[in-house]
């Protein structure tokens, strides 16, 4: 059976494009020193956020971001019918504990660093399908909670690689509504898991680049639109090296997105901030979207945006067992 919303193999064209009614983001101290600092709603002065563990701090960042976006739109928490969120920690605890405090019906997600796109994809489907009128899509990550789960103790003297990325301490939350003013979500492409055999856990960019390129290519093919349709195509957190690989793949595939293609991770920090290949984490795409990107859409600097958040779906356990890194990318088209 062919549905009236499905386009091609993997893309959904929403028939009643949901509105992004509001957005908010809170970022950590280092993240707040980046070139985008004026676009963020709140910059923390310290990584603990008045909590006693990094995990609690991460959850609080998400919780406060959601409260902030609700306040900014003059709503109450009760007005939100369901919220979708995810993070990088085992059992997505940051989101779960935020949901405990917020008392909003909750669907927890895991898409690694692609979570912002995953939650937006599902939120807009829920709204477009007429199931809900007001949904929050969110994602968060915290540098130090991710470090202790995926890498080494903070104080251990380890040398970094040029392909290493800095997990961003940040959360972003958006209100997706059925009517209202704001940018619309028009099309969605749900990505496939792509694994090109990369197994270097110090280099997520080259594991994720093929997934991003596959999703972008499928998006253009499914909708039958030219690769210069969008003002900006932006991937999630390939970092500067992953982005360079993706650009090579674009040329190979003959779909160079014009006029602009860039990557949230590669531009998230200033080069002077010493983060090797750039930023990563759920919070990277989330903060870039809810900070600079949507605010630029609001003032008309960008009118057609394709966000392709990317996620490396590995764990330290599978890596030690010799598995390669599977990756995923979902695309969300946002238009004025």
């Amino acid at each position: 059976m062919k549905t009236d919303k499905k386009r091609g193999m993997q893309t959904i064209a929403l028939s009643n494009p949901p509105v992004l009614a509001g957005w908010a983001t809170i970022v950590g101290p280092k993240e707040g020193e980046s070139p985008w600092q004026n676009y963020y709603d709140k910059i923390l002065s310290d990584y603990m956020f008045e909590e006693d563990t990094f995990e609690k701090a991460e959850s609080k960042i998400l919780r406060e971001t959601i409260k902030l976006v609700v306040n900014k739109n003059n709503l109450q928490l009760d007005d939100i019918e369901v919220f979708l969120s995810g993070d990088l920690l085992n059992q997505t605890v940051s989101s779960n504990y935020a949901a405990r405090e917020l008392e909003i019906p909750y669907l927890g997600l895991y898409g690694a660093c692609s979570t912002m796109a995953e939650s937006l994809v599902l939120a807009s489907m829920l709204v477009d399908g007429g199931f809900y009128n007001k949904v929050i899509a969110a994602a968060c990550s915290h540098h130090y909670s991710a470090e202790r789960q995926f890498r080494f103790p903070v104080e251990q003297g380890v040398q970094s690689n040029p392909t290493n990325q800095w997990t961003a301490t940040a959360a972003g939350a958006l209100i997706v509504e059925n009517t209202g003013i704001g940018p619309y979500i028009t099309n969605l492409t749900v990505g496939k898991v792509v694994d090109m055999g990369q197994a270097d856990i110090a280099d997520m960019g080259s594991a994720m680049a093929p997934a991003a390129v596959a999703t972008i290519k499928q998006h253009f093919a499914d909708l039958n639109i030219p690769s210069d349709y969008y003002d900006l195509v932006i991937t999630g957190d390939l970092g500067s090296f992953g982005m360079a690989i993706a650009e090579q793949l674009f040329i190979k595939e003959g779909i160079v997105p014009q006029p602009n293609y860039t990557d949230c991770g590669a531009i998230f920090f200033d080069k002077k901030q010493k983060v090797n290949a750039g930023a990563s984490g759920c919070g990277c795409a989330a903060a870039m979207l809810c900070g600079p990107l949507l605010n630029m859409m609001k003032i008309g600097k960008i009118n057609k945006l394709l966000l392709v958040a990317t996620g490396a779906l590995m764990s330290p356990i599978t890596s030690f067992q010799g598995e390669s890194i599977p990756a995923i990318a979902h695309a969300v088209a946002i238009e004025n």
Binding site: G8, M9, Q10, T215, Q218, A221
Partner: peptide, 8 residues
Amino acid sequence: VNDVTKDA
């Protein structure tokens, strides 16, 4: 419809 991911 063509599944470009497979082609890619």
